[in-house]
């Protein structure tokens, strides 16, 4: 134990006395420990190249510095996000702005249910467009041709045509907008018709006719609902045959020719059915003292 203590004391660099040294060497075991320890102290590890390693460290640090650290620029990142959102927003708006378009062909009527349960009956050869998505905010549609509206109560309901705009709150009315002829008949409630230069309020049971932006007539009518809706008839009051024929061509897949242009100015009051071409032609021609022939889709009308 004493020798052990002395050995460690000596290994730990403390100076031993002569006597202590002798005591250690007395044991062959400890003598050999001393020899081993002394010999080990003269060992050398391979040389450490301090300078070369320092250079290597500096190089590594330098190259690490040169690796460009891509800094995320918070502004550009933000702008990218904004750009994506903007594109999405515009796209969404665009899709939203796409209108639902209803188009009817000759001899075809369509009953359209609008998003708020308002109904539109679109007459033949007409185009109606509205936006389903924005309907709750804006009850607005555009019309080219003729349509009958049953509007449920709610926000202002607008029908835009090239010839004027009809605005209502909740009512039933018919809009006719073809060839510079604009006719609004109100059957229930009150409609407001905006023309390029005036605004006219049309109460229930009144018929407003506008031609070439001029009011031709604004008078009460007895009809409860448009004939083309109720009885499948087209109705005319003191209309030139020219217009009647055009309507006929819209309701039947035919082309009408007349032998002389003079008869086109004849005035017609009455209605024709949409169900039978021959009956319709008879109701038109008889009071005007005209005759007609039908061959395939060609109808010829001529004076007696």
């Amino acid at each position: 134990m004493k020798q052990d203590y002395l050995l460690h004391k000596w290994l730990n660099g403390e100076i031993l006395t002569e006597a202590e040294m002798l005591q250690l060497k007395a044991s062959p075991e400890f003598a050999s420990y001393l020899k081993i320890s002394d010999a080990s102290a003269t060992l050398t590890p391979p040389t450490f190249n301090q300078e070369a390693n320092f250079k290597a460290i500096k190089n590594k640090l330098a190259t690490k510095k040169h690796i460009p650290v891509k800094k995320l620029n918070p502004l550009t990142t933000f702008l990218k996000i904004v750009a994506v959102l903007a594109v999405l927003f515009v796209g969404y708006k665009y899709i939203n702005s796409l209108n639902t378009t209803v188009k009817t062909e000759v001899a075809q009527t369509k009953n359209i249910q609008l998003p708020d349960e308002s109904e539109v009956l679109v007459n033949a050869k007409s185009t109606l467009a509205f936006n389903k998505k924005t309907w709750d905010k804006k009850r607005e549609l555009s019309l080219e041709g003729e349509a009958y509206f049953k509007v449920t109560r709610g926000k202002k309901f607008r029908v835009k045509t090239a010839l004027g705009e009809v605005a209502v709150l909740g009512t039933q009315f018919n809009v006719y907008a073809r060839d510079k002829k604009f006719t609004v008949v109100c059957y229930e409630g009150l409609v407001q018709v905006t023309l390029p230069d005036t605004i006219i309020k049309v109460p229930a049971g009144n018929n407003l006719r506008v031609e070439n932006n001029k009011i031709i007539s604004f008078k009460p009518t007895q009809i409860q609902a448009p004939l083309w809706v109720v009885q499948k008839e087209s109705h005319f009051e003191n209309a030139p045959l020219r217009d009647v024929i055009k309507e006929l061509e819209r309701q039947y897949p035919i082309t009408v020719s007349t032998k002389s242009n003079r008869i086109l100015d004849k005035r017609f009051t009455g209605s024709f059915t949409h169900k039978n071409l021959e009956t319709a032609l008879k109701t038109i021609c008889k009071p005007l003292q005209l005759k007609f022939t039908i061959s395939d889709n060609q109808v010829s009308i001529y004076a007696k």
Binding site: Q50, N53, L61
Partner: peptide
């Protein structure tokens, strides 16, 4: 650096490896 290098050399006995370890340690220190 020298004593750290020797310390790790006594452990691993590979001077090239000791170089690397010392270099890495000093880089981390920086």
């Amino acid at each position: 650096s020298k004593s750290v290098w020797r310390f790790i050399y006594f452990k691993c006995g590979d001077s090239a490896r000791a170089d690397d370890l010392v270099q890495d340690a000093f880089i981390k220190l920086w």
